[in-house]
Design a protein around this nucleic acid. Structure first.
Length: 335
DNA sequence: AACGCGGGGGG
DNA sequence: CCCCCAGCGTT
């Protein structure tokens, strides 16, 4: 892995942000793209947020990209490009929490601070047979304490990366091959037969259903309308098409009668069709989006509020969009 | 202390 | 269908 070949704090920081809640296989191409496009923290700081989000497109948890950019500007402009060099100071950076601060401090500055990520929770909970839920306040404190106690003092960078890799390759979530594990003679959960039930994690959230009705304007077959998502919620600062969200499935008439469409132009000057009757169900970890796309062909410029902008269709790929819309754009516009 | 936040991959 | 992933910020 390329981030194992450097101790440049910029690259270690970048790799750790990308890898938060993200598998190495998914994050690696993004790491390569970011280091290519932005070789230094100054290059990243000088970019527009929209460009950063575009390069981040598809990786999810977009607050990571926004915080990444904010922190890059802070380090480039206020700290003159010099990263904080301790766990305590790193922790103050936006988007850098306990795990990431420990990772950077140990890998770049040889500080003896343990990383406690999903892998480490699993290894420690099994080896010491600890059933405290890893996502409870108590569990977080308990595992951090244990991690500090058992941490090797000599090579913190190697130790931290090793215990994570041990969790990823040997002490795997499913079907760990304990018979060949080098720790099997002292692993408490293996002795007690609790390996498959550890680590303990508290309840999962209920998934919410939402209905997204996207309006795809085709003005003279050359322009379309998009707007940026603002405020709270999913996909903050990414772009999307004008959206009618509803509590339930709606019919074509509902969309045609909706004020967004009614006020945009007269019914006689447009033609509304459904792209695909079948819902496109986009699954996020906490909500399912039942999505339909409505194609609105017209020769007149629609009157929409100031948050919307009309753009040439051949420029649509320059805007950061969620995967759901990226897939639609690929299949519908074929650009 | 609980919740919101993406998307992909494996069993 | 489920769970998990080199977690963090907000409420």
């Amino acid at each position: 892995m390329p981030w194992r070949e450097t101790t440049d704090p910029y690259r270690i920081w970048l790799s750790e942000i990308i890898l938060q809640q993200t598998r190495v296989a998914q994050g690696l191409p993004y790491y390569l793209a970011f280091t290519e496009q932005y070789p230094t923290v100054f290059d990243l700081a000088n970019a527009e947020e929209e460009q950063v989000l575009k390069l981040w497109q598809g990786l999810g948890y977009y607050s990571r990209a926004r915080n990444l950019h904010t922190t890059a500007k802070y380090i480039a402009n206020d700290l003159h490009g010099v990263f904080p060099a301790s766990y305590k100071e790193l922790l103050k950076l936006k988007g850098v929490g306990d795990y990431t601060a420990s990772a950077i401090a140990s890998i770049c500055y040889d500080e003896v601070v343990p990383v406690v990520d999903g892998n480490v929770y699993r290894v420690l909970s099994r080896y010491f047979n600890i059933s405290t839920p890893i996502n409870s306040t108590e569990g977080i404190k308990e595992f951090k304490k244990v991690a500090i106690e058992v941490m090797e003092q000599e090579e913190p960078a190697t130790y931290n990366q090793a215990i994570m890799e041990f969790g990823a390759l040997q002490c795997k979530p499913q079907n760990p091959y304990c018979i060949v594990c080098p720790l099997n003679d002292s692993c408490e959960s293996l002795q007690k037969g609790t390996v498959t039930s550890l680590p303990v994690k508290l309840k999962k959230l209920k998934v919410k259903k939402r209905y997204f009705n996207y309006l795809i304007f085709l003005v003279d077959n050359k322009h379309t309308v998009i707007r940026q998502r603002i405020g709270k919620g999913i996909w903050q600062n990414l772009y999307e098409f004008p959206l009618i969200e509803s509590d339930n499935e709606v019919k074509l008439e509902y969309v045609e009668e909706h004020e967004i469409l009614k006020e945009s132009m007269s019914a006689s000057s447009r033609n509304v069709t459904v792209y695909e009757e079948e819902f496109k169900i986009h699954k996020l970890s906490h909500q399912h989006l039942y999505t339909r796309f409505y194609i609105i062909r017209t020769n007149k410029s629609p009157k929409l509020d100031d948050s919307c902008q009309m753009i040439p269709i051949d420029k649509i790929k320059e805007y950061p969009v969620p995967v759901l819309l990226g897939n639609f754009i690929d299949s519908f516009f074929k650009v």
